[in-house]
Every structure is written in structure tokens, then in C-alpha cells.
């Protein structure tokens, strides 16, 4: 696929909880290989949108096309196999496993040993484990997590857990990476590390990244384009520069100018 081709296209998506409209006629495109940031005040529907992409929520109308597949019609567990990975706002790691095993668990879709091979283990499953271990070790190197390789993630500090979660998403070798507030609750240094990782991996693998983030400075620095949501409605879309000067965005964030 060529760069600048549309990889994910969201069209007329509606979602509501009871009487509240979470997403209203939402539509935008994500292009191959770009970093698209979605911003908006709390409750704007950013995470709801990601949940729609993952089929955690069922959209009421509209379509979500990813590389020719209609995501609204695919079973949730099959979406990973299409090449979409995600991190969560409130970390959703496998807390009882080590960093290494969390990443190995993310290789699930790329591995093939079934019930019988797993029971027997020696032979196919063993060889497969070793070859995937090599991929995982590369990601551990890339994210500088060697020292916590064998730590149980439940006992890691918050910033590192976020990093492990990014690693777990990378272990899936996605073509589209959904990052839900990867830098919330981090200090400046951790944020800069995380931004560096995101830019590095974008550079190296040309992964398309859909990023939700509250830190405006950071979003403006790393995003190619920005989509702004307010109460489920897209109020602006464009380059960071255009967004910075958009009157409606300023209104949504700061209120009416007097």
C-alpha cells in the first residue's frame, strides 16, 4: 500500500448509551503511515471511539473500514489478526505474568501451536517458542526494558507498566497502533521517553498510529494531523498548526472569549 492511502476510514458512526449520544455522525480517515492524534475534553468520546474500533462497543450505524475489512462485522478476537493493536488508558496488562511472558502472550496471533502441540511441547511448540522469544527480546531491547524482563508486571511502577503495555502492543507487529493516553500520569522524563519510543517505532516500521492524548504540547509536536472531538462531534480536523488557530477548538477548550 502506498503512503497517503487511506488505511482506516470511519464513516457516519453513531453510538449512544441510554439517552447520551457518545459519538454523533463521526467520520474521518487515517492515512497509511501517519500519526493521527485525537484530542478533546474529558467525555468527548475518544476512548469510546477506540472501543468501537475494537468491537468492545457495537456501533449503532455507520461503517468502519480497515484495509478493506468492515470492522463492525468482525468478531472482536479476529481484529488483532488484521493488524490492529492497542494500549489502554488504565493499563490492562496480565498482572500475574512477567514482562517477558506478557510480550510472549502477545505473540499469540503469530503462533500456531494448538492443544496437542502445547501438551507435547517438545518439538514444534518448543522451536516456535524460541523463535518468537527472539522477536520479543528485540522489542525488549528497543524499549529498554532488559532490567525488568523477569519482573512480575503487577509489581512494576506505573511508568514502566505503560512501557510494557506499549511493548505488548508492538509484539503483535501491528499495522495500526491505537494508543489510548500513553503518557497520562507520567513525569516529564517518562513522557519524553515515551514520545521518543513512539517516534522511533514510527520511523523504523512506518506503523500507522492513532493517538489519544491530553498533553497538548506533546500532541502538537509529534502528530501529523489532529482530529478534535467535543461531545461526540468532530469539530475540527487538520495539521497541528491549523488546529492551534481554530476558533471552535479554542472555544471547546477554553470557553467563549469575552
Amino acid at each position: 500500500m502506498n503512503p497517503k492511502d487511506t488505511q482506516l476510514s470511519v464513516r457516519n458512526v453513531n453510538l449512544s448509551f441510554g439517552g447520551t449520544q457518545a459519538l454523533v455522525n463521526l467520520g474521518f480517515d487515517v492515512r497509511q503511515g501517519e500519526i493521527l492524534a485525537i484530542i478533546g475534553p474529558n467525555g468527548a468520546g475518544k476512548t469510546s471511539l477506540l472501543n468501537c474500533l475494537n468491537r468492545f462497543y457495537k456501533v449503532e450505524s455507520g461503517s468502519i473500514q480497515f484495509e478493506g475489512y468492515d470492522l463492525t462485522k468482525i468478531a472482536p478476537h479476529r481484529i488483532a489478526g488484521l493488524g490492529i493493536a492497542r494500549t489502554f488508558q488504565n493499563i490492562a496488562l496480565y498482572t500475574g505474568l512477567s514482562t517477558l511472558d506478557n510480550l510472549m502472550a502477545a505473540r499469540h496471533i503469530h503462533m500456531h501451536s494448538g492443544l496437542l502441540q502445547s501438551l507435547i511441547y517438545w518439538g514444534f511448540a518448543h522451536r516456535e517458542d524460541i523463535s518468537h522469544r527472539m522477536v520479543v527480546e528485540e522489542i525488549i531491547d528497543f524499549l529498554e526494558m532488559e532490567h525488568i524482563r523477569r519482573s512480575i508486571v503487577g509489581s512494576l511502577p506505573y511508568g514502566l507498566r505503560k512501557r510494557v503495555e506499549l511493548g505488548r502492543a508492538l509484539a503483535m507487529e501491528p499495522r495500526l497502533l491505537l494508543l489510548d493516553e500513553p503518557m497520562t500520569g507520567m513525569n516529564l522524563e517518562e513522557k519524553e521517553d515515551m514520545a521518543r519510543f513512539i517516534l522511533d517505532l514510527h520511523e523504523r516500521q512506518k506503523t500507522t498510529i492513532l493517538l489519544i492524548e491530553h498533553d497538548m504540547g506533546l500532541v502538537m509536536d509529534i502528530a501529523d494531523r489532529v482530529v478534535v472531538l467535543d461531545f461526540g462531534v468532530k469539530i475540527a480536523e487538520g495539521s497541528p498548526q491549523e488546529i492551534r488557530e481554530d476558533q471552535q477548538v479554542i472555544k471547546a477548550y477554553l470557553g467563549e472569549a469575552r
Binding site: 500475574g96 505474568l97 511472558d101 502472550a105 501451536s113 494448538g114 502445547s118 511441547y121 511448540a125 517458542d129
Partner: peptide
């Protein structure tokens, strides 16, 4: 193995 990681 893969199965066990899926279980966990």
C-alpha cells in the same frame, strides 16, 4: 506454551 499463556 502458547496455550498456557492464552489461559493466563
Amino acid at each position: 506454551s502458547r496455550l498456557g499463556r492464552a489461559f493466563i
